[in-house]
Write a protein that binds this DNA or RNA. Structure first.
Lengths: 227, 227
DNA sequence: ATAAATTATAATGTATACAAAATAATCAGA
DNA sequence: TCTGATTATTTTGTATACATTATAATTTAT
């Protein structure tokens, strides 16, 4: 899945750092020590620093001059903002996809959707989330807009930091599955405005679940002063 | 305007590089020589390289491992894609602004708009473009969504590379002014869907003008192979 | 003379060394 | 003991040195 082939060291480091943040090995708000990390990965500080710059511009890492790098810890408001934007953009993707989709594209979506239903039946959260990811990526690609793709992938980096336990929250798993059925329907019917609407709703529901989960565990680390 | 206070050298270099690209001192597709640039700016290669990484993740610079950095030269399709996304997002900004705007916000918009009309009357392209920029920034801010702001600012970096002669094209100057009048009206009426619509149209018209201007001067440099 | 291959040069990527700033630790005074 | 200031240490930022890759220049063979 995240097998971005690394041509240079700093790309490799970037990739591994993403993994560490996503897995929780580096938790939100935590300081990232350059020396420690470079020793851990067996490289010098140079590629580590370059990787941190990359993650910074993706919004995954905060950089404060002469004070270090910290894993971004968005506020609830920022998460809401993030999902609002993603809702608009993924909604646009769905709309465009419904407009442009060919027969064979629909087939592929169908295949992925069946896989999603299978994982849902088995209550396999991990597999469901991965396939869910693929579905969204495919709809993105079907939009045929490269910039849209890039922007969304960037924003998703941040969302993925909080992926963990969404589906365990209340009946989010069932709801998510149901929403995906609606998305598939809209695409099948080639109904752009409906596709946009249900996709947007899917994102906002996901956001609410995440926010509810996120709220309790706020006061962990609070080191970030004026940027 | 672009007075981003530079706390570290690489931020200063980033800022200056942006200026060089925007002014045309570094043209589209041109290779950026690290050594040359570092000597020009009187710094070592380190901050230059960091700046290039930052601009890369903004999409302003292409980086090819072991081959160097090049000023991005988007294809017509990419420009179209870019404006489509910006249209969606700036449209959303306008919609949200129309919803949330207070009396004093409207006053500020009015002030800017009057300034815009003044520059238009005098046919002062530079001043018009600058004020135009401020108007869009203000509407963005009024959306109240920080992520939306950040994403748009990032995308605009790329657009600004091509700002130059838009207004000289056909009757683009008149059209632009007229579109801004419509935007102002929609905001005054607190009509979110109309505001979204006219803003979107404003962006797509701008895109067409830019694309028409861009087309002739394609075959300048074509060095970029598979990334 | 042209084309392929080899060598030489220059550029990028990485590691190390040094400088500047922030954090930690020590010490003096109350 | 606690507070404040000063010093020491650690960490980040920058510069330089070295390694690796790509580009060029040269050589050699046809």
């Amino acid at each position: 899945m995240q097998k971005i082939e690394a041509k240079t060291l700093h790309m490799e480091v970037t990739s591994r750092l993403r993994g560490m943040i996503r897995s929780g090995e580096l938790s939100r708000g935590q300081k990232i020590d350059e020396k420690h990390l470079s020793e851990l990965m067996g490289v010098s500080r140079t590629p580590v620093r370059e990787a941190l710059r990359v993650l910074h511009s993706e919004g995954v890492v905060d950089l404060i001059p002469y004070r270090g790098a910290y894993v971004t810890q968005p506020s609830i408001e920022e998460i809401r903002d993030l999902f609002d934007v993603m809702g608009v953009l993924e909604g646009t993707c769905a709309k465009l996809a419904a407009l442009r989709m060919a027969e064979e594209d629909l087939k592929k979506i169908h295949t992925l959707h069946r896989s999603l239903e299978r994982h849902f039946l088995r209550r396999d959260h991990e597999a469901y989330l991965e396939t869910n990811h693929y579905v969204h990526l495919m709809i993105q690609e079907l939009s045929g807009n490269k910039v849209l793709n890039d922007v969304l992938n960037g924003l998703r980096q941040k969302v993925l930091l909080y992926r963990h336990r969404q589906l365990y929250y209340k009946d989010r798993f069932e709801k998510s599955m149901q929403e995906h059925r609606l998305i598939l329907e809209a695409l099948q019917e080639c109904n752009p405005s409906l596709a946009e609407e249900v996709m947007k709703k899917h994102l906002s529901n996901q956001c609410e679940a995440l926010v509810d989960l996120y709220s309790p565990e706020q006061g962990e680390a609070d080191h970030q002063r004026a940027a």
